[in-house]
């Protein structure tokens, strides 16, 4: 129960960050990506502030032997750059540029973005489902 409530609080905090920074607004995101046009660098400040808080906060959190409500810290250990990582990042970037929504804002926009936001979220979920199918096929020995 405590785990779920804390997750709800973390999700709410994340979402409020997206709303206050306007990252939830596709037009604001497109303006940030429009480097060669009418560039609005605001979102670099979102990333910068988030990075500073996270980098400092993580250091303090990791002084503890384990998380408050879990057995251990689960931090990805993989440090190898591969084709999957690069291809995925490029495909994601293209989709981000086409619409101006990445996964967090796509979910948060559900309550303010009307039918187009719902359509984007459904397509995003379908893309994730397609990956699961693709990944399970690739993992199966021929």
């Amino acid at each position: 129960m405590a785990r779920n409530l804390m997750a709800l609080l973390a999700g709410l905090t994340f979402g409020l960050g997206l709303v206050i920074s306007q990252m939830v607004n596709p037009a604001k995101v497109i303006a940030f990506l429009d480097l060669f046009g009418n560039w609005d660098p605001s979102l670099a400040f979102v990333m910068g502030a988030a990075l500073i808080v996270t980098a400092i906060g993580y250091r303090f959190v990791w002084l503890r032997p384990r998380p408050v409500l879990a057995e251990s810290f689960q931090v990805p250990g993989n440090r190898k750059v591969d084709a999957k990582l690069a291809t995925g990042a490029v495909l994601f970037g293209i989709g981000w540029g086409l619409v101006g929504l990445c996964p967090g804002p796509a979910i948060a926009a559900l309550t303010i973005g009307g039918v187009p936001a719902l359509g984007f979220l459904a397509a995003m979920a379908a893309g994730m489902l397609a990956f699961e199918v693709f990944d399970r096929r690739a993992a199966k020995p021929a």
Binding site: S21, V61, L69, A70
Partner: peptide, 29 residues
């Protein structure tokens, strides 16, 4: 450069960072 909003962007970004720290501190994720 219209609509440049560095202050609200930084406050929002700090909240996103706070959320990431909370999730690591409590869930380890």
């Amino acid at each position: 450069m219209e609509d440049f909003t560095p202050i609200s962007a930084s406050i929002g970004g700090a909240l996103i960072g706070l959320s990431a720290v909370l999730l690591m501190a409590f869930h380890g994720r």
